[in-house]
Amino acid sequence: MEHEDIIKELGKEKLIGFYTKMVKIRSFEERIRFLFLEGKMPGTIHQYIGMEANAVGVCSALQKDDVIASTHRPHGHAIARGLSFNEIMAELYGRTTGCCRGKGGSMHLGNLEKGMLTAIAIVGGNLPIVVGMSLAFKLMKQNRVAVSFFGDGASNEGSFHESLNMAAVLNTPSVFVCENNQYGASTSIKKVMKIENIADRARSYGIEGVIADGMDVIDVYIHAKDAIEKARKGGGPTLLELKTFRFCGHSRRDPGSYIPKEEKESWQRKDPINNFKKLLLNEGLAGEDELDDINNLIEKELDESIIFAQESPEPAPEDTLKDLYATMEVPE
């Protein structure tokens, strides 16, 4: 299908939804970066700026009872999957009202009731778990799909190999979404892999490998939807590689000095939000004012979530001893 036809088919409401979710992620990340640098927020953060189209495109293609698993960089996935600013912000502040009651923090965001597993911050750690979640759906004859988000770096882990092979032979309803943002921490992917496309690795497991433009939310959505619906119909797993880039450092105060200026600039020209905004305006699907209103509402919601988080109670120190076992207290 051509892009224009797809735009027509998706319709205004869905496309504005894409825009809103992407701006939510960008605004959230920019705001907390500021809070973090001011020293108002504890811990560490790995940000998703530049990669918004990935999470939004994939999550928009899911059904309500599908499940995603994320990584150490989970803010975008959490927002795209429908976790509220409040529960995310409070978790970043380590408060009892956070989605993990302050026990998870930035790297372990999740809310299974909303279809997102507690994020797994070990590189490659969530892939086998996603095989298991989708195996459970298959055994219980539920028509659900599990999606793993992971980075280019994770595709060099042993768990990637074991998981894709196992998902293939067990024919589980899994989708493996590799967000190839070109760098594993500070290391260029070109330095640690001799192939151009991670999707090519799918062939060695006898499953389909697909590439989509991770800077284009519509392209991500279309390819994700295909893979998800194929899995749902019993067609087995897909490896979906999204070519993308992070406009920020790996974590915290990393300025990303290892990224050549030209490379950075060429990716910034593909900014998924700017370009999508232009498309909405050019196609006459939205006016400047309408989009400004969306942005303003998001800023207001962010203001409120920061107040909510800052005014939420801190856990008691002894809460450390809660929530480990379902059936007993922590032994001394």
Partner: peptide
């Protein structure tokens, strides 16, 4: 259907059990 033979993949096996358990199974 419920005695599941796997490849020699211990990361895969334990991860699969973990994920299935989270979704309500008893592996």
């Amino acid at each position: 259907d419920r005695i599941i033979d796997t490849p020699i993949s211990e990361i895969g096996i334990f991860g699969a059990a973990c994920g299935a358990a989270v979704m309500g199974m008893r592996p």
